[in-house]
Computed example of a mutant assay.
Amino acid sequence: MVFISSQWSLTKVKYFFTKKGIRLEGISEFLLPLYVKEIHSRKDSPLVLQSDRNVTVNARNHMGQLTGQLTVGADAVEAQCKRFEVRASEGEKVLFSADEDEIIIGADRLKVTGTEGAVFGHSVETPHIRAEPSQDLKLESPTRSLIMEAPRGVQVSAAAGDLKATCRKELHLQSTEGEIFLNADIIRLGNLPMGSFSSSPSSSSTPRQTIYELCVCPNGKLYLSPAGAGSTCQSTSNICLWS
């Protein structure tokens, strides 16, 4: 049996008392709070709750204390509870859940369609990040550093395009226990500074230098030195001393 503790005004409404409670046919307007155990519509009709301001659904415990609240307003939908869940139509798989400690997205795929992408204020843990086909993938930190870590390695690949890493200051590639392996048909290092080396006085008849040696300073900086019969790299090069 359904009990109603309220006053109501009915306009063109038919109401019937049945074994299962009260059945209303038409639009019902309740002027005071409505207390019921269950509200449902006919199988072939939707259930509509309408208000000029907002619709609020409260859940209370046996002591009358508020334990959950759902408010549908003109500007937002707000939920206040210990845990909020969105489940699939079957009711078993949790698509989204949120509590004070964490937010879980249970969908197989999270798609961000905004032109500005997704902004994360703190760390993000995920096994896979990719862009849509024919779209660029950008990972950037405008004012801070960008760190990618994984216990078994980080793989960055571009199967059908270029891979580009740019920064304002220094780019560090560091391997603490292994090696840095560059495997490509052509490896280009642009804008390297030119060191100076002279084993004999230069003359106007000396052919123009076209072959250079790649040198590494003790501090790791790279520079080019004119190639000779032997190595022309010098730790006392002006590039190493003034870098």
Rank of each mutant, 00 (worst) to 15 (best):
I187H: 07
A74K: 12
F96N: 14
S157V: 15
G68K: 00
E177V: 11
R60N: 00
A74F: 02
H62C: 00
E177F: 05
I22E: 05
Q69D: 00
K43A: 02
L34G: 03
R208A: 08
G91Y: 07
F197D: 01
L49Y: 03
T236P: 01
P201A: 04
F3M: 10
I39G: 02
I239A: 04
S225F: 03
S205G: 05
K221A: 03
S141K: 01
I104M: 08
C215A: 04
K14L: 12
I4W: 11
K14M: 13
G190W: 05
P142Y: 13
M194S: 03
T11D: 13
P142K: 10
R208H: 09
L139S: 01
S134E: 10
F3L: 10
I105W: 14
K169L: 06
V112F: 09
R188M: 10
V2R: 09
W242H: 07
K164D: 06
V72K: 09
F17K: 13
R152E: 10
A150R: 02
K93D: 13
A74N: 05
I186F: 13
P201E: 05
S41F: 03
V216G: 04
K37N: 14
R130Q: 14
I22R: 07
P151K: 08
I129V: 13
A131W: 02
T236Q: 02
S200C: 05
G106S: 09
L32V: 09
H122A: 13
S175G: 13
K169N: 05
K93A: 13
F84Q: 01
L66R: 04
A160Q: 15
L224S: 05
H62E: 12
C81Y: 00
G178P: 15
L171P: 00
Q69H: 01
G190D: 07
Q65K: 12
G121I: 11
S9M: 10
D75T: 13
S205Y: 10
T143E: 15
V77N: 12
V48F: 08
T67D: 03
G21T: 01
A150I: 00
A98H: 11
K221D: 02
E116S: 07
A159L: 15
S6M: 06
V72M: 12
G117S: 06
